[in-house]
Simulated assay, not measured.
Amino acid sequence: MADHVNLVKLCVGVDSVEDLAARIALRGGRTTSHVTRMWPKQEDALLAGGSLYWVIKGVIQARQRIVSLEEYHGTDGVRRCAIMLDAELIRTTNVQRRPFQGWRYLKPEDAPADLPKGRENESELPADLAQTLADIGLL
Rank of each mutant, 00 (worst) to 15 (best):
I90L: 08
P116G: 02
Y105C: 13
M1P: 11
V5N: 10
G74I: 04
V17H: 01
V14N: 02
E70A: 09
Q96D: 14
V35R: 01
S123G: 03
C81M: 03
C11K: 00
D110I: 06
R119I: 06
E124W: 10
Q131F: 02
I83P: 02
R23F: 00
E124I: 04
G102F: 01
V5L: 08
E88C: 11
K9D: 08
L7F: 06
L69Q: 11
S16W: 04
I83S: 01
E122I: 07
W39Q: 04
D110N: 14
N94M: 10
L20Y: 13
W103D: 03
K117C: 05
R98T: 15
L89S: 05
L10W: 03
L85N: 01
L10F: 00
H4G: 08
R27E: 12
V8P: 02
R23M: 04
A127E: 12
K117T: 13
E88Y: 13
D19Q: 08
A87E: 15
R79E: 15
G50I: 07
Q96A: 06
D15K: 10
E43F: 09
I90D: 02
W103P: 00
G137H: 03
M38N: 14
G118Y: 06
L46Y: 06
D76S: 05
E70I: 07
G50R: 03
S51F: 04
K41P: 08
I90R: 03
Q64D: 06
R119F: 08
L138R: 12
R98K: 13
R65S: 15
A21D: 13
K117S: 12
A130N: 04
C81W: 01
S123I: 06
L20T: 09
E109W: 07
Y105T: 14
G50N: 07
T31N: 13
K117L: 10
L26T: 10
E18H: 09
R79H: 09
T32N: 08
L10R: 05
V95T: 15
I136Q: 03
K107G: 08
S68I: 13
V5D: 10
G28D: 14
G13I: 05
Y105W: 14
E43S: 14
A82V: 05
I136G: 02
E120H: 01
V5K: 07
D15T: 10
I136A: 01
V59W: 02
G102Y: 12
Q61K: 14
R104H: 15
Y105R: 11
K117M: 06
H4L: 04
H73P: 00
R104D: 12
N6G: 07
Q61S: 09
R80E: 13
L20D: 09
A127L: 11
R79I: 12
G137W: 03
G118I: 05
G137A: 02
K117E: 15
D44K: 13
L133T: 05
W39G: 00
V12R: 10
L138I: 05
V14R: 02
S123C: 04
P116M: 00
G50C: 06
A25H: 11
I60W: 03
T75W: 11
S51N: 08
V55K: 01
C11P: 02
V78I: 15
R98G: 14
P108G: 04
R98F: 14
W103M: 04
P108F: 10
M84L: 13
V12I: 08
L115T: 07
L133P: 01
V5S: 06
K57D: 14
L7D: 03
Y105F: 15
E124N: 11
D86E: 15
Q96N: 05
T93G: 15
M1W: 10
E88G: 05
P112A: 06
E122C: 03
A25G: 13
